[in-house]
C-alpha cells in the first residue's frame, strides 16, 4: 500500500472539505468507470480504517474522515445519474462536496423538470407518448421548454418525438 506519513494524512484530512471528488481520488475529469473503480481501490488501500489500526488516535481519526469522503466521492462518480449533477454543481461553484441525495434530486430535476409547470407538461407529454399521440407530446414538450428553456431532458425527448412523428407521416 502507498504509505503516507502521518503528517500528510492529517493535512489531507484538513483540506478534504475543499478537495473535489476528482482531486480526492486523483482522477481526470473524463475518467471512465474502470478508472474510477481502480482509484477507489487504490485510495482505499491507503485510507481504509482497517489499514490504519496501528496508527496514533489523531491519525486514525483523520483517516476515518478521509475514508468517509472517499466512499462519498465513489458513490457520486460511479453513478451515471449523480455524476452529471455533481459536474454541474462543480461548474456552478457549488463547492467540492455534494450530498448524495442532493445529487440524486438535482438529476431528477434535470430529467423531470425544475419548475412545476415544466414538470406538469413533461408528465403530460409522457402520457401522450404512451397513448401514441406524438403530435400532442411534441406540443406539450414545447410548452414545457418555454418554462424551462434549455432543459436537456426535455430537448432530448422532443427530438425523439419528432423522429417518431416523421416516421409515422412518412
Amino acid at each position: 500500500m502507498a504509505a503516507l506519513a502521518p503528517a500528510e494524512i492529517l493535512a489531507l484530512a484538513r483540506i478534504s472539505e475543499e478537495l473535489d471528488y476528482y482531486q480526492l481520488l486523483h482522477l481526470q475529469d473524463d475518467a471512465n468507470a474502470r478508472q474510477i473503480k481502480d482509484a477507489y481501490y487504490e485510495t482505499s488501500r491507503t485510507f481504509h480504517p482497517d489499514a490504519c489500526r496501528h496508527l496514533p488516535d489523531d491519525v486514525r481519526r483523520a483517516v476515518a474522515v478521509i475514508a468517509k469522503r472517499i466512499s462519498e466521492a465513489y458513490s457520486i462518480l460511479r453513478d451515471p445519474r449523480r455524476r452529471p449533477a455533481y459536474d454541474r454543481h462543480l461548474e456552478s461553484g457549488g463547492g467540492a462536496r455534494m450530498q448524495l441525495a442532493q445529487a440524486e434530486g438535482a438529476q431528477r430535476a434535470e430529467v423531470e423538470g425544475k419548475t412545476p409547470q415544466g414538470r406538469q407538461y413533461f408528465t403530460l407529454a409522457n402520457q401522450d407518448i404512451r397513448r401514441g399521440d406524438f403530435a400532442a407530446a411534441a406540443r406539450n414538450l414545447q410548452t414545457a421548454l418555454t418554462f424551462e428553456p434549455g432543459n436537456e431532458g426535455f430537448e432530448k425527448l422532443l427530438v425523439e418525438v419528432r423522429e417518431k412523428l416523421e416516421h409515422s407521416s412518412a
Binding site: 462519498e72 458513490s75 441525495a101
Partner: peptide, 11 residues
Amino acid sequence: IERNTPVPIEQ
C-alpha cells in the same frame, strides 16, 4: 443514505 452505499459514509 441509500442502500448499497459504500461504508464508512457520512452525510
